[in-house]
Nucleic acid binder design. Structure first.
Lengths: 201, 201
DNA sequence: CAATAATTTGACCAACTGGTCAAAGCGAGG
DNA sequence: CCTCGCTTTGACCAGTTGGTCAAATTATTG
């Protein structure tokens, strides 16, 4: 990751370990997971894991770092020059797609936040906050121009996060209630209806 | 809990233990918490904990059982005879109040669900599901009568859960972004606006 | 106040955990 | 086929964890 030559086998095994770590950590959280679990999931021995990563913590941290990039990116894609409702609906759809296709990443993040974000609190208060504040300015501008109904930008963004991540994080509950029906079929429509109802002037 | 006489001191200590368990388990999840943590939080020794509860698991399970009652109750208070928008808004407000005043309970529940609901999966697929299905019938009736816009009842309920619990479960993130502003000030207004936009015919 | 029951705890244990290390395997170039 | 560096692992370790137990302490009651 840093200044290593990274042979093919190193790349492959590091990827295996991170993939396994994602599976395990996203289900049990950091403290609830064991290196043995990660090792078995990766198909490697425990000492072998520690040949590629210096510690359990390092695996988890690497995973979180990689995740944070993908997590913040969709926010950056909101274009101030675009149509307000389209932009916000597009963002919501991107987040919902992530919940559908990367539920483990969502749950890993959720676990970390629920447990107090001990490792990424700084990122939240720094990069994430300033990013959200930028978008808030844009949204306030749209509202001032009468292109959307006046809304609190922060709560609007929280709404989108909550509504989309719920389908990944609470997947078990959602499926317990919906049975055989695929939740994501109706979710997109419902999400769009909610946001249009809120935003359309 | 079962058929014990329950002296005053037993009641007091069991309550202390459950309160401590809530604090600890809600932050670290079941596997991430230790009996020593719970004991210290309760101001008791570890063997003393195990004098009142047979195991770590028993404390956690007792906590979950108690929680589930409070969790399902607000759903039952929805009156089919009431005004549809008032009833749903009232339900949302009750849930938001719970997020504000009992965030730990919310996080305990969230931890359990995210990690696959190993202990309450049956309740979700049984009691919760049938309860939600009942409400769904009521909501469909309201929609058929044209008293609210047509919505998917399940996704509507998920929305309310997601929007309200987000403020408790992701409290750290919400506050990281909002700084000194109390999130719950604006949350209620925003929640009402979203639901009115969706429901009002 | 004696005696009996309820409560508390220090010492302990076996299983598990993250992590170490020396030795063994293995593959590619000579 | 031999060597040398990368990779893998069995054995091991110290700290932690859930849980036990006998003994000590503290109510409670006749």
């Amino acid at each position: 990751m840093t200044t290593k030559p990274d042979t093919r086998i190193q790349i492959k095994n590091q990827a295996s370990i991170l993939a396994a770590g994602l599976v395990v950590f996203s289900q049990y959280g950091f403290r609830g997971s064991t290196l043995d679990q990660v090792a078995e999931e990766a198909g490697l021995s425990k000492p072998n894991l520690l040949y590629y990563f210096p510690s359990k913590d390092a695996i988890y941290t690497a995973l979180l770092a990689k995740l944070l990039e993908n997590w913040l990116e969709p926010l950056r894609e909101i274009k101030p020059s675009g149509d307000p409702v389209d932009e916000l609906l597009g963002y919501a759809r991107r987040k919902l797609d992530m919940s559908q296709h990367f539920p483990r990443e969502s749950r890993l993040f959720a676990n970390e936040i629920i447990q107090g974000a001990p490792r990424i609190g700084d990122v939240l208060r720094g990069e994430l906050r300033s990013l959200v504040d930028e978008i808030a300015v844009v949204i306030n501008g749209w509202a001032a121009d009468g292109r959307i109904k006046p809304v609190d930008p922060h709560h609007l963004i929280f709404s989108i996060w909550a509504l989309t991540q719920h389908y990944a994080d609470f997947d078990v509950q959602v499926r317990a209630i919906m049975g055989d029906v695929d939740p994501f079929d109706g979710a997109a429509q419902h999400l769009e209806a909610m946001l249009r109802g809120l935003l359309t002037p």
